[in-house]
Design a protein around this nucleic acid. Structure first.
Lengths: 137, 137
DNA sequence: ACATCGTATGAACGCCTATTCACACGTTCA
DNA sequence: TGAACGTGTGAATAGGCGTTCATACGATGT
């Protein structure tokens, strides 16, 4: 195992050289005009990584079901757990992820936390998504 | 530890009791009407898991960038690699994932494979997504 | 004050996944 | 035919992620 580790270290240094070779290798069949045009049209790294994280959060069945449920009605954690048939802990962890991407908001009434979609865009996204998957059957 | 294990073996029935306790624990604060309504509005397992996988595929920055690039123009694998500045292998693997979810289609011209978005819905999804993330800055 | 309830959270563990490397395949051209 | 090219893919490895368990916290009611 130790020997494998040292081999990987050696490989790691070789990467720079390899990457230069790779770059040359990548630039063979390019349609320069198209490539430049597409490059300029590309979104910023920030927008891409934020949207990717948003999609990733919605890419889990449990969280997706939570988001869809909240697009229909405001619900507390316990009711969400009941609707989905999963534990409260799962719902809470899922809501945390959805919260961190600002997909849901919540208000607290005593000890009960009522969650809802934060934005109508999310509802549109879900609608568009479901329309897409339901169409191609 | 071993003695506990054997006790549990002898009394396998205890499991049912535990799960019942859990169920009871989940069902305390429910608003029955809301729960029933939301339950009926929920999408089918198939639709949910398909859409979740779609989102998951788009939840990777590389694949998202590829999808967005293809929403602007038809591109071959090599040009995609050039535009994104990643290896051809990464692009190929990414395209495989996008292909499996029917997000992209391709036509082959000689040895060159030209990829494009399979569906306009995907473009709409990306548009809606980027509109959302660019708005909340 | 105490017990209970609804919710949040951290740690741990097993699984999934993205990347890299190496190679295989079919196509084109000399 | 053989070499170079564009592309696809399997194996391997490292890092990320979801679930569970245990526990903590504030609010409520007795």
């Amino acid at each position: 195992m130790a020997s494998v580790g040292s081999m990987q270290e050696r490989r790691g240094r070789a990467r720079h050289q390899v990457s230069q070779t790779e770059d040359l290798c990548e630039v063979r069949c390019v349609d320069e005009a198209k490539v430049r045009r597409t490059r300029q049209a590309m979104k910023s790294t920030g927008a891409v990584s934020t949207l990717a994280e948003t999609f990733k959060v919605l890419g889990d069945p449990t969280r997706l079901r939570i988001a869809y449920a909240l697009s229909r009605d405001e619900l507390c954690v316990c009711d969400l757990a009941t609707v989905l048939g999963v534990s409260q802990s799962v719902v809470s962890h899922s809501l945390r992820a959805l919260r961190q991407m600002r997909l849901v908001r919540y208000r607290k009434e005593g000890k009960i936390a009522y969650y809802a979609l934060d934005d109508d865009h999310i509802g549109s996204l879900l609608g568009e998504g479901f329309r897409h998957v339901e169409e191609q059957l």
